[in-house]
Design a protein around this nucleic acid. Sequence first.
DNA 1: CTAAACAGTGGAGTACGCTCCAAGGTCAAG
DNA 2: CTTGACCTTGGAGCGTACTCCACTGTTTAG
Lengths: 139, 139
Amino acid sequence: MRIGELAAQAGMSRDAIRFYEKVGLVAGRRLPNGYRDFPPETVAWLQYIRTAQALGFSLAEIARTGETLREAPDTAEALSTLFEEKLQVIDTRIAELTTLRADLATRVGTGCPLRAAGLPAEAEVESDPVPTGARRPAE
Amino acid sequence: MRIGELAAQAGMSRDAIRFYEKVGLVAGRRLPNGYRDFPPETVAWLQYIRTAQALGFSLAEIARTGETLREAPDTAEALSTLFEEKLQVIDTRIAELTTLRADLATRVGTGCPLRAAGLPAEAEVESDPVPTGARRPAE
DNA sequence: CTAAACAGTGGAGTACGCTCCAAGGTCAAG
DNA sequence: CTTGACCTTGGAGCGTACTCCACTGTTTAG
């Protein structure tokens, strides 16, 4: 499978995949003509990357997962361990969010917990608060 | 309150606060000598910023919150509305995490859902997968 | 009066995660 | 044999969120 098809199936750009390859997140053979050639499972792996990213994991963390997996003598077992670790991380994150939720819920009733707290007074309201237009990759 | 004390109380660097001011996230008067002067509530506002960031909100989003707040005729009411909106976002995020959690939990038992999925074959294992060391701002 | 501790500015640099571009090679169809 | 779709590389650039630095001004303690 060449990069174009992989990109289409994984729903990302060729450039992104090349970038992932550069940082060691994906690997593929090369065809005699120099083209990249990926096994079909790479689609699932890329989707996993996307999911993990959406969850707030950095590419470096995801790469570590991949490395651990590669180095494991028993892949199946290693995978289970990793997933269990991720579950813990997720649980932690959910707990944090729940805490903040409660925090905010408490304040909803309150009068003005942040009143006039150094908010941008009265300046260029129509201008962008951040240097140049905001854009976020995923989410 | 000058920037140093504010930074100490909010637990962040002076530079960060100056940066926030530059992008319109905080505002303060200036003393005759040019020093910034912040109202004490700014501490709470900065802490709110940190929390929101930890939750995955970008500074631009946080700034929009602030703007909405400023423009509201009834601050108390606007705040409640905003908090309720945040609660929804948090609930959504928790739901997403829960879904992924279940997803992973399912796979823990499974054999090898990602086996050989284009993982970095056998290269420089000791080198950093990402150009230079990974670091994440908050969390 | 001097030294230290603060404050200010502007600009450069950093890490992450890409995107976009230019210049060129490869390949299949017409 | 040309056209067009696809692939390659390298490098530049961008947006977010800062940090760090140099140089300068202000305030305060001894």
